[in-house]
């Protein structure tokens, strides 16, 4: 484990650095279950079934995976600012490796590559290899964005074989028992061209996420942003109204994350209307008329 030597001194920048496969979710992340997703994920994990998370942006997919990593790992004690992550007795480690996929992400980015160093070339495991070896939950965010050749890797990992062929070194790695592949996918803004292939899709169970119902969302916003319940409720209603526009010019509705941002700004004393404007309206669209319309909704809900 690589770790920055941190002396908690004042004015000293403080950060923690982990090797990618050693990152454990130590403290319980806040996650408010809406349906039976917790049970489903746990069952899939036990049964080594890969999981596909579907849902619009900012509705809590990543948070969910984080939460599950914590829950499945379940460290015995949780200590804040605990610099070392030593194994405690009876602790199960489920590291979480998250990779945000982008269009230039190639298979070798995931598996690993030869690097040059002072004495010659050296093989470096990519994050996927490390996750497979370490028995982590590997979370590929927005998987359709990645290049097509990544499917070559996903397929053998996701069926009964659970192997990762490393072409360049000529090895095959059998995944650790705790390893699970989890991918996310946002059906809304994917063009047909970038859709997931069925041969890929059908290796996963799919859990659908959507924005939570108003009351639940209000609870989440309140909890996450720390703003008043009343504001949180208004924000979640605003979210609901804006999502009504999804088919009428808005590509995506206001995400729970944005609502939380607005709530946080409000908590810091920014006036509600202004907070919504910068956190929600201007973020969602550049189109004048649409902005104006959403602003009118904001003005109706907030004084």
């Amino acid at each position: 484990m690589v770790e920055a030597n941190i002396e908690l001194m004042e004015d000293e920048p403080s950060f923690k650095e982990f090797a990618i496969e050693e990152f454990l979710v130590r403290s319980e992340p806040y996650y408010r279950a809406v349906g039976d997703e917790l049970e489903l994920f746990e069952a899939a994990y036990e049964q080594h079934i890969p999981v596909l998370l579907k849902g619009p942006t900012g509705c809590g997919k990543t948070r969910f995976v984080e939460y599950m990593a914590w829950k499945l790992g379940r460290p015995i004690t949780t200590v804040r600012n605990q610099a070392s992550q030593e194994m405690r007795e009876g602790e199960v480690r489920v590291p979480l490796v998250t990779i945000a996929c982008h269009e230039d992400l190639t298979a070798s980015d995931l598996v690993g590559r030869y690097l040059l160093d002072a004495n010659g070339t050296r093989w470096i495991d990519g994050p996927m290899t490390r996750a497979v070896k370490a028995g982590a939950i590997l979370y590929l965010d927005e998987v359709v964005e990645a290049r097509k050749d990544t499917t070559v890797l996903i397929h053998p990992l996701t069926d009964h074989r659970r192997i990762l062929p490393v072409e360049k070194t000529g090895n095959i790695i059998e995944a650790d028992d705790r390893f699970l592949l989890c991918i996310s996918y946002n059906p809304h803004y994917q063009s047909a061209l970038k859709d997931l292939k069925h041969s890929t899709r059908q290796r996963f169970i799919s859990i659908e996420f959507d924005y939570p119902p108003v009351d639940v969302e209000a609870e989440i916003v309140a909890k996450e942003s720390g703003c008043s319940d009343e504001d949180a409720h208004a924000l979640s209603r605003l979210g609901e109204k804006i999502r009504n526009l999804r088919e009428h010019g808005l590509a995506e509705g206001a995400s729970t994350r944005l609502l939380i941002y607005a709530g946080r700004l409000m908590r810091q004393g920014i006036p509600a209307r202004r907070a919504c404007q910068v956190a929600i309206v201007w973020t969602l669209t550049d189109e004048q008329e649409l902005q104006r319309s959403i602003e009118e909704v904001v003005y109706s809900i907030f004084e």
């Binding site: 109204k241 804006i242 009504n244 526009l245 008329e289 319309s293 959403i294 009118e296 909704v297 109706s300």
Partner: peptide
């Protein structure tokens, strides 16, 4: 009209 249309749509959730 455009603004009003989107406004009413947002509020009602209907087309």
């Amino acid at each position: 009209k455009g603004i009003m249309r989107l406004y009413t749509r947002a509020l009602s959730g209907a087309n």
